[in-house]
Design a protein around this nucleic acid. Structure first.
Lengths: 198, 198
DNA sequence: GCACGTGGCTAGTGGGTGTTAGCCGAGCGC
DNA sequence: GCGCTCGGCTAACACCCACTAGCCACGTGC
C-alpha cells in the first residue's frame, strides 16, 4: 500500500492533531476521547501521535493555553480602545461574546475540562480566569463610581454578564439564525441594560 | 471486626448511594468516578453497590431525572401562582436561580454529564430541557405582545436569562456572601431590566 | 549511493474499570 | 433451630487505554 497523502506539507502536522483533539474533546469529553480517536481523525494510528506530542494531557494544556490567551488579549484590546466606561464595557462584552461564538469548542473545553488538567496547569488557568473576571469587575465598579451604572450588586452583575456570554458557546452555530456580530451587539445591549447604564 | 454501623435504618441505603454518586460525579465527573469511589463514600466495596443499583449509568439517570423533574415542577408552580406576566417572569427566574443555588450539584451534573447518558435517556432529557426553555420563551413572548417587555430578540433574551441562572451553580456556596433569597431577588431584577420590563 | 533523521507502523506493558460469580454471616419467620 | 433472604465480601473476567519499544520505509544532505 503506497502512501495515500503524498507528503504532509511541513512540520505543521502538530497543528492538525491539536485541531482534531479540540474537536473530539469538545464533542466526547477529554476522558472519553482516546489517542486512537485522535489518531483516526488525522489518518494515523494512536501511538504515532507521540512523534508529535508528548502526551494527551499536553494536547489539553495547549488547547487551554491558547484559548485563555486569546480571550485576555481580546479583552485588553477592547478596553484600551476607548476611555468611556460605558463604551469600554460594551466592547468588552462584545469581545467576550465574539470569542464564545467564534471559538465555541475552545470555550467548551476550557470550562468543561478544567478539572482534568493536572494540578499545576489547573492552578495557572484558574488564576488567569480570575484575572479576566477581575477586569470586568473593575470596569463595572468604575462605571458605578462615575454614576454611569446602577446595580444591586457588582459581583452578581459581573457573574451574570460573563455567564450569559459563556452560554453562547453552547447554542451558537456558524451560519445559523444569528451572525456573530448580531449576537455580540445584542449581548452588549443586554449587558448595558442589566447595568442600568446611562 | 464487628459492624461499625449497627444496622442501616431501612432500605434507604440506595438514597445514600445516589447522594454519594451525585457528589462524586459533580466533583470529578462521571467517567472519572469509579464504582469503588462511590462504594468508599458509603463504606462498602464497589461490587456491593450492585445489590442496590443496576449500573453506574442508572445512577446518572436517576440523578438527572430527579433534577429535571424538580426544575419543571418549580417552574410550573411559579408561573401558575399569578396572572401578571411581569410577576410570572420574575417568579420563574427566581425559581430557576433558587434551583441552581440549592441544587448546585444536580445542576452541574445535569448539564456537564448529559453526553454520557446513553442515547435513549439523553433524548428524553434534551426534550424535557427544550420544554423548559419553551416555557420561558412563551412567557417573554407574551410579555412582549402585551407591551410589558421590550427586547431586541426574544430568543437571545431567553438564552441570556437562563444562562445567567445556570452560572449560579458554578460559584454559589451555602453560607457564602449571598443567601439564596438574595441571589434569587437580584437575578429576578436583572432579568426584568434585561427585558426592559415595565 | 549511503548514512541518517523523520515519522509512520505493530506489538506489548502495566494499570485500571464496570460488572458478574459465588461465598457467607446475620437476622427473621415459623 | 432451621432455612431463607438480604446485603455484604473477594475473586475474576473481559475489556480498554495511555504510553513505550523496537522496527522499517522514505527522502534528504553530502
Amino acid at each position: 500500500m503506497s502512501t495515500p497523502t503524498r507528503v504532509p506539507p511541513r512540520g505543521d502536522r502538530r497543528a492538525g492533531i491539536v485541531a482534531a483533539a479540540l474537536e473530539l474533546f469538545a464533542d466526547k469529553g477529554y476522558l472519553a476521547t482516546t489517542m486512537d480517536d485522535i489518531g483516526r481523525a488525522v489518518a494515523m494510528r494512536g501511538p504515532s501521535l507521540y512523534k508529535h506530542v508528548a502526551s494527551k494531557q499536553d494536547l489539553l494544556v495547549e488547547i487551554m493555553e491558547r484559548s485563555i490567551a486569546t480571550v485576555l488579549r481580546d479583552h485588553r484590546i477592547a478596553v484600551e480602545s476607548t476611555d468611556d466606561v460605558r463604551e469600554q464595557l460594551r466592547r468588552a462584552v462584545e469581545a467576550h461574546v465574539r470569542f464564545h461564538a467564534r471559538h465555541r469548542l475552545e470555550a467548551f473545553v476550557g470550562t468543561r475540562e478544567l478539572r482534568h488538567l493536572d494540578e499545576a496547569n489547573r492552578a495557572v488557568m484558574l488564576s488567569l480566569r480570575k484575572d479576566y473576571e477581575s477586569g470586568f469587575r473593575e470596569l463595572v465598579e468604575r462605571g458605578v463610581a462615575q454614576g454611569r451604572f446602577r446595580v444591586g450588586s457588582v459581583k452578581l452583575a459581573v457573574y451574570s454578564i460573563l455567564d450569559m456570554g459563556v452560554g453562547v458557546a453552547v447554542w451558537f452555530r456558524e451560519g445559523g439564525e444569528f451572525s456573530v456580530d448580531e449576537v455580540a451587539y445584542h449581548y452588549g445591549d443586554q449587558a448595558l441594560r442589566l447595568l442600568g447604564a446611562d
